[in-house]
Simulated scan of single mutants.
Amino acid sequence: MYSKPAFAPANTHEVHEFIDRTVFGTLVTKSPDSLVISHLIFIVDRTRGPHGTLVSHLSRTNEHASLILQGAESAAIFVGEHGYISSSWYPGYPVRDSAPTWNFSVVHCHGRPRALDADGATAHLRDAVRHLEQGRDKPWGINELGDEGIARRVANIVAFELSIDRLEAKFKLGQDERLPDTRAAIEHLQRDGGCPLATRMEEKNRHRN
Rank of each mutant, 00 (worst) to 15 (best):
E168W: 07
T26D: 01
V79T: 13
A128S: 11
E14W: 11
F104I: 01
V107W: 08
S66W: 00
G174K: 06
I43A: 10
K170N: 14
R183D: 04
G194I: 00
A99G: 01
V55H: 14
R153W: 07
R48V: 14
D45F: 12
S74T: 11
V129I: 13
A155F: 06
G193D: 03
S163L: 03
D147R: 10
A185K: 00
A72W: 02
A10R: 15
G141R: 14
Y93C: 00
L167E: 02
M1W: 08
L173E: 03
H131Y: 04
Q190P: 00
G25A: 11
E144A: 15
P5G: 10
H13I: 08
D176A: 15
L132Y: 06
R166D: 11
T122A: 13
D165F: 01
V158E: 05
P9M: 05
D45S: 09
N209R: 12
Q190D: 14
H39G: 01
Q134H: 14
I19Q: 06
W102H: 04
G194K: 02
I77G: 04
S3P: 05
V23A: 12
A123E: 14
S86H: 08
P32M: 09
P113T: 09
I19N: 07
S56Q: 08
F160N: 03
V79Q: 12
L132H: 13
I157H: 03
A184R: 05
I19D: 06
F104V: 02
F7V: 05
C195P: 01
D137Q: 12
C109Y: 03
V44H: 10
G92F: 10
V79K: 04
G71H: 08
E148T: 14
G71T: 06
T53S: 07
S31H: 07
D147P: 10
L189V: 02
V106G: 04
